[in-house]
Design a binder for these strands. Structure first.
Length: 270
DNA sequence: AAATTCTCCTGAAGGC
DNA sequence: TGCCTTCAGGAGAATT
Protein backbone atom coordinates (compact mmCIF):
# COMPACT_ATOMS: atom_id res chain seq x y z
CA UNK A 1 0.00 0.00 0.00
CA UNK A 2 1.22 3.48 -0.69
CA UNK A 3 3.01 4.99 2.26
CA UNK A 4 4.76 8.33 2.05
CA UNK A 5 7.94 6.83 0.55
CA UNK A 6 5.93 5.12 -2.14
CA UNK A 7 4.00 8.26 -2.97
CA UNK A 8 7.28 10.12 -3.26
CA UNK A 9 8.70 7.34 -5.38
CA UNK A 10 5.63 7.54 -7.58
CA UNK A 11 6.03 11.28 -7.91
CA UNK A 12 9.64 10.98 -8.96
CA UNK A 13 8.81 8.16 -11.33
CA UNK A 14 6.06 9.86 -13.25
CA UNK A 15 7.35 13.44 -13.19
CA UNK A 16 9.78 13.14 -16.12
CA UNK A 17 7.04 11.68 -18.29
CA UNK A 18 4.37 14.26 -17.65
CA UNK A 19 5.96 17.50 -16.44
CA UNK A 20 5.78 20.29 -19.00
CA UNK A 21 3.35 18.39 -21.20
CA UNK A 22 -0.13 19.55 -22.06
CA UNK A 23 -3.19 17.55 -21.13
CA UNK A 24 -5.00 16.43 -24.24
CA UNK A 25 -7.87 14.61 -22.60
CA UNK A 26 -9.30 13.55 -19.25
CA UNK A 27 -11.08 10.23 -18.89
CA UNK A 28 -13.24 9.43 -15.89
CA UNK A 29 -14.48 5.85 -15.96
CA UNK A 30 -15.55 5.61 -12.35
CA UNK A 31 -16.14 8.96 -10.64
CA UNK A 32 -17.05 7.43 -7.30
CA UNK A 33 -13.85 7.45 -5.31
CA UNK A 34 -13.67 8.79 -1.78
CA UNK A 35 -15.34 11.88 -3.14
CA UNK A 36 -16.76 12.19 -6.66
CA UNK A 37 -14.18 13.18 -9.24
CA UNK A 38 -15.27 16.65 -10.42
CA UNK A 39 -16.46 16.23 -13.98
CA UNK A 40 -15.57 19.82 -14.82
CA UNK A 41 -11.94 18.85 -15.24
CA UNK A 42 -12.77 16.96 -18.42
CA UNK A 43 -13.52 20.38 -19.88
CA UNK A 44 -11.15 22.65 -17.95
CA UNK A 45 -7.90 20.66 -18.15
CA UNK A 46 -7.33 19.84 -21.84
CA UNK A 47 -4.95 22.28 -23.45
CA UNK A 48 -3.24 23.14 -20.18
CA UNK A 49 0.36 22.34 -19.47
CA UNK A 50 1.39 20.54 -16.29
CA UNK A 51 3.69 23.04 -14.60
CA UNK A 52 4.59 21.29 -11.36
CA UNK A 53 4.21 17.99 -9.56
CA UNK A 54 4.65 18.17 -5.81
CA UNK A 55 3.86 16.04 -2.82
CA UNK A 56 2.37 17.10 0.50
CA UNK A 57 2.01 14.22 2.94
CA UNK A 58 0.51 11.47 0.83
CA UNK A 59 -1.18 13.90 -1.52
CA UNK A 60 0.16 14.45 -5.02
CA UNK A 61 -0.35 17.99 -6.29
CA UNK A 62 -0.48 18.58 -10.03
CA UNK A 63 0.00 22.27 -10.70
CA UNK A 64 -1.58 24.04 -13.66
CA UNK A 65 -1.77 27.73 -14.45
CA UNK A 66 -5.43 27.88 -13.46
CA UNK A 67 -5.44 25.55 -10.44
CA UNK A 68 -4.31 22.25 -9.00
CA UNK A 69 -5.33 18.66 -9.26
CA UNK A 70 -5.12 16.96 -5.86
CA UNK A 71 -4.66 13.21 -5.96
CA UNK A 72 -4.53 10.68 -3.14
CA UNK A 73 -3.81 7.00 -3.67
CA UNK A 74 -5.80 5.83 -0.67
CA UNK A 75 -4.61 2.43 0.30
CA UNK A 76 -4.81 0.56 -2.98
CA UNK A 77 -4.17 3.23 -5.56
CA UNK A 78 -1.36 3.27 -8.08
CA UNK A 79 -0.36 5.54 -10.93
CA UNK A 80 1.28 4.41 -14.11
CA UNK A 81 2.47 6.03 -17.29
CA UNK A 82 1.20 3.99 -20.21
CA UNK A 83 0.71 4.31 -23.95
CA UNK A 84 -2.62 6.04 -24.33
CA UNK A 85 -4.14 3.19 -26.31
CA UNK A 86 -3.51 0.64 -23.55
CA UNK A 87 -6.87 -1.01 -22.80
CA UNK A 88 -8.21 -0.11 -19.39
CA UNK A 89 -8.49 -2.92 -16.90
CA UNK A 90 -10.91 -3.34 -14.06
CA UNK A 91 -10.42 -0.61 -11.43
CA UNK A 92 -8.71 1.77 -13.87
CA UNK A 93 -10.85 4.72 -12.88
CA UNK A 94 -9.12 7.79 -14.21
CA UNK A 95 -6.75 8.85 -17.02
CA UNK A 96 -4.88 12.08 -17.51
CA UNK A 97 -3.96 11.88 -21.18
CA UNK A 98 -0.87 13.65 -22.49
CA UNK A 99 -0.98 12.87 -26.19
CA UNK A 100 0.61 9.48 -26.81
CA UNK A 101 1.13 8.76 -23.10
CA UNK A 102 -1.35 8.75 -20.31
CA UNK A 103 -1.22 8.75 -16.56
CA UNK A 104 -3.60 6.09 -15.30
CA UNK A 105 -5.04 5.74 -11.82
CA UNK A 106 -5.95 2.27 -10.70
CA UNK A 107 -7.58 1.90 -7.30
CA UNK A 108 -9.47 -1.32 -6.50
CA UNK A 109 -10.77 -0.19 -3.12
CA UNK A 110 -11.53 3.35 -4.18
CA UNK A 111 -10.25 4.99 -1.02
CA UNK A 112 -8.29 7.34 -3.18
CA UNK A 113 -9.31 10.77 -4.40
CA UNK A 114 -9.02 13.09 -7.37
CA UNK A 115 -10.02 16.67 -6.67
CA UNK A 116 -9.62 20.07 -8.22
CA UNK A 117 -9.04 23.49 -6.73
CA UNK A 118 -8.56 26.81 -8.44
CA UNK A 119 -7.33 28.39 -5.21
CA UNK A 120 -3.71 28.18 -4.06
CA UNK A 121 -3.43 24.50 -3.26
CA UNK A 122 -1.94 25.01 0.19
CA UNK A 123 -5.21 26.69 1.16
CA UNK A 124 -7.31 23.68 0.28
CA UNK A 125 -9.00 22.30 3.43
CA UNK A 126 -7.38 18.89 2.96
CA UNK A 127 -3.92 20.41 2.72
CA UNK A 128 -4.15 23.43 5.01
CA UNK A 129 -4.62 21.45 8.22
CA UNK A 130 -1.77 19.03 7.66
CA UNK A 131 1.13 18.81 10.09
CA UNK A 132 4.77 19.26 9.08
CA UNK A 133 6.60 17.05 6.62
CA UNK A 134 8.62 14.48 8.58
CA UNK A 135 11.71 15.23 6.50
CA UNK A 136 11.50 18.98 6.98
CA UNK A 137 13.29 21.19 9.47
CA UNK A 138 10.06 21.89 11.33
CA UNK A 139 9.73 18.31 12.40
CA UNK A 140 11.70 17.89 15.60
CA UNK A 141 11.52 16.10 18.92
CA UNK A 142 10.83 19.40 20.57
CA UNK A 143 7.83 19.90 18.29
CA UNK A 144 6.44 16.45 19.15
CA UNK A 145 7.04 17.07 22.83
CA UNK A 146 5.20 20.38 22.85
CA UNK A 147 2.31 19.14 20.77
CA UNK A 148 1.75 16.10 22.93
CA UNK A 149 1.50 17.85 26.31
CA UNK A 150 -1.80 17.35 28.14
CA UNK A 151 -2.91 14.74 25.69
CA UNK A 152 -3.58 11.14 26.55
CA UNK A 153 -3.89 9.18 23.34
CA UNK A 154 -1.42 6.40 22.65
CA UNK A 155 1.80 7.68 21.15
CA UNK A 156 1.22 5.49 18.10
CA UNK A 157 -2.08 7.22 17.43
CA UNK A 158 -0.42 10.54 18.03
CA UNK A 159 2.25 10.11 15.38
CA UNK A 160 -0.24 8.62 12.91
CA UNK A 161 -2.42 11.72 13.11
CA UNK A 162 -1.80 13.81 10.02
CA UNK A 163 -2.21 16.97 12.07
CA UNK A 164 0.78 15.92 14.15
CA UNK A 165 2.98 14.91 11.24
CA UNK A 166 2.12 13.73 7.75
CA UNK A 167 3.00 10.46 6.13
CA UNK A 168 3.50 8.15 9.10
CA UNK A 169 1.23 5.22 8.28
CA UNK A 170 0.44 2.16 10.29
CA UNK A 171 3.49 0.21 9.20
CA UNK A 172 6.10 2.91 9.75
CA UNK A 173 4.54 3.92 13.06
CA UNK A 174 5.23 0.46 14.46
CA UNK A 175 8.71 0.42 13.00
CA UNK A 176 9.69 3.86 14.23
CA UNK A 177 8.44 3.15 17.75
CA UNK A 178 10.38 -0.09 17.80
CA UNK A 179 13.56 1.64 16.74
CA UNK A 180 13.00 4.35 19.31
CA UNK A 181 12.32 1.82 22.06
CA UNK A 182 8.95 3.32 22.90
CA UNK A 183 5.86 1.28 23.77
CA UNK A 184 3.16 2.19 21.25
CA UNK A 185 0.42 2.25 23.88
CA UNK A 186 2.18 4.77 26.08
CA UNK A 187 0.15 7.98 26.56
CA UNK A 188 1.80 10.59 24.38
CA UNK A 189 1.58 13.34 26.97
CA UNK A 190 3.91 11.62 29.41
CA UNK A 191 6.84 10.95 27.13
CA UNK A 192 10.01 12.96 27.76
CA UNK A 193 11.57 15.46 25.39
CA UNK A 194 14.64 13.26 25.10
CA UNK A 195 12.61 10.28 23.97
CA UNK A 196 10.72 12.41 21.47
CA UNK A 197 14.02 13.58 20.09
CA UNK A 198 14.91 9.97 19.45
CA UNK A 199 11.48 9.23 17.97
CA UNK A 200 11.66 12.17 15.58
CA UNK A 201 15.03 10.85 14.43
CA UNK A 202 13.83 7.31 13.86
CA UNK A 203 10.77 8.50 11.94
CA UNK A 204 12.98 10.62 9.75
CA UNK A 205 15.54 7.89 9.21
CA UNK A 206 13.03 5.19 8.36
CA UNK A 207 11.13 7.33 5.87
CA UNK A 208 14.30 8.69 4.31
CA UNK A 209 15.86 5.29 3.82
CA UNK A 210 12.60 3.99 2.43
CA UNK A 211 12.56 6.76 -0.15
CA UNK A 212 16.24 6.19 -0.78
CA UNK A 213 15.69 2.61 -1.85
CA UNK A 214 12.44 3.49 -3.56
CA UNK A 215 14.10 2.79 -6.88
CA UNK A 216 13.18 -0.83 -6.67
CA UNK A 217 9.57 -0.01 -6.01
CA UNK A 218 9.75 2.48 -8.82
CA UNK A 219 10.85 -0.15 -11.28
CA UNK A 220 7.98 -2.38 -10.29
CA UNK A 221 5.73 0.58 -10.68
CA UNK A 222 7.00 1.23 -14.19
CA UNK A 223 6.73 -2.43 -15.03
CA UNK A 224 3.11 -2.06 -14.10
CA UNK A 225 2.94 -5.32 -12.25
CA UNK A 226 1.52 -4.11 -8.94
CA UNK A 227 4.36 -5.62 -6.98
CA UNK A 228 4.32 -5.74 -3.17
CA UNK A 229 6.50 -3.24 -1.34
CA UNK A 230 10.22 -3.73 -1.31
CA UNK A 231 10.24 -2.88 2.39
CA UNK A 232 8.41 -5.97 3.51
CA UNK A 233 11.82 -7.55 4.05
CA UNK A 234 13.18 -4.59 5.95
CA UNK A 235 10.46 -4.52 8.55
CA UNK A 236 11.63 -5.42 12.03
CA UNK A 237 8.32 -5.89 13.81
CA UNK A 238 5.40 -5.16 11.51
CA UNK A 239 3.46 -8.32 10.65
CA UNK A 240 5.81 -10.45 12.74
CA UNK A 241 3.45 -11.50 15.50
CA UNK A 242 5.01 -14.32 17.55
CA UNK A 243 8.36 -14.07 15.82
CA UNK A 244 11.41 -13.20 17.86
CA UNK A 245 12.56 -9.64 18.27
CA UNK A 246 15.61 -8.98 16.07
CA UNK A 247 17.20 -7.14 18.97
CA UNK A 248 16.52 -9.21 22.11
CA UNK A 249 14.89 -12.39 20.84
CA UNK A 250 11.70 -12.25 22.85
CA UNK A 251 8.37 -12.70 21.11
CA UNK A 252 6.89 -9.82 19.16
CA UNK A 253 3.39 -9.00 20.22
CA UNK A 254 0.43 -7.90 18.14
CA UNK A 255 -2.13 -5.61 19.67
CA UNK A 256 -4.94 -3.53 18.27
CA UNK A 257 -4.49 0.14 19.09
CA UNK A 258 -7.20 2.48 17.90
CA UNK A 259 -8.52 -0.12 15.46
CA UNK A 260 -5.10 -0.65 13.93
CA UNK A 261 -2.86 -3.67 14.16
CA UNK A 262 0.26 -2.75 16.06
CA UNK A 263 3.41 -4.75 16.64
CA UNK A 264 6.04 -4.30 19.31
CA UNK A 265 8.59 -5.97 21.53
CA UNK A 266 7.49 -6.00 25.15
CA UNK A 267 11.07 -6.12 26.31
CA UNK A 268 12.77 -3.52 24.12
CA UNK A 269 9.92 -1.03 24.13
CA UNK A 270 8.94 0.75 27.32
C1' DA B 1 -10.58 20.70 22.51
C1' DA B 2 -9.81 15.96 22.55
C1' DA B 3 -11.02 11.35 21.88
C1' DT B 4 -13.68 7.80 19.81
C1' DT B 5 -16.45 5.72 16.37
C1' DC B 6 -18.12 5.45 11.77
C1' DT B 7 -17.55 5.31 6.90
C1' DC B 8 -16.11 4.52 2.17
C1' DC B 9 -14.61 -0.33 -0.76
C1' DT B 10 -12.74 -4.76 -2.48
C1' DG B 11 -9.72 -8.65 -2.27
C1' DA B 12 -7.60 -12.00 0.53
C1' DA B 13 -7.98 -15.40 3.87
C1' DG B 14 -10.34 -18.49 6.85
C1' DG B 15 -14.30 -21.49 8.12
C1' DC B 16 -17.42 -24.96 6.91
C1' DT C 1 -15.28 -26.23 -5.40
C1' DG C 2 -17.76 -22.68 -3.50
C1' DC C 3 -20.26 -19.75 -0.60
C1' DC C 4 -20.27 -16.87 3.49
C1' DT C 5 -17.91 -14.15 6.99
C1' DT C 6 -14.27 -11.45 8.66
C1' DC C 7 -10.74 -8.29 8.28
C1' DA C 8 -7.41 -4.79 6.69
C1' DG C 9 -6.61 -0.03 6.01
C1' DG C 10 -6.06 6.24 5.04
C1' DA C 11 -8.11 9.60 6.85
C1' DG C 12 -12.08 12.78 6.87
C1' DA C 13 -16.73 13.11 9.03
C1' DA C 14 -19.72 12.49 12.63
C1' DT C 15 -20.45 11.77 17.34
C1' DT C 16 -19.50 11.73 22.18
Amino acid sequence: MPELPEVETTRRGIAPHVLGNAVSKVIIRQPRLRWPIPTQITRSLPGHKLLSLNRRGKYLLFGFAHGSLILHLGMSGSLRVLPTDTPARKHDHFDLVFGPQCLRLRDPRRFGAVLWTSEPVEQHPLIASLGPEPLSENFTGEYLFKRSRRRRIAVKQFIMDGKTVVGVGNIYASEALFQAGILPTRPCGGISAARYARLASTIREILASAIESGGTTLQDFLQANGNPGYFAQELQVYGRNGESCPSCGSAIRRQIIAQRASYYCTRCQR
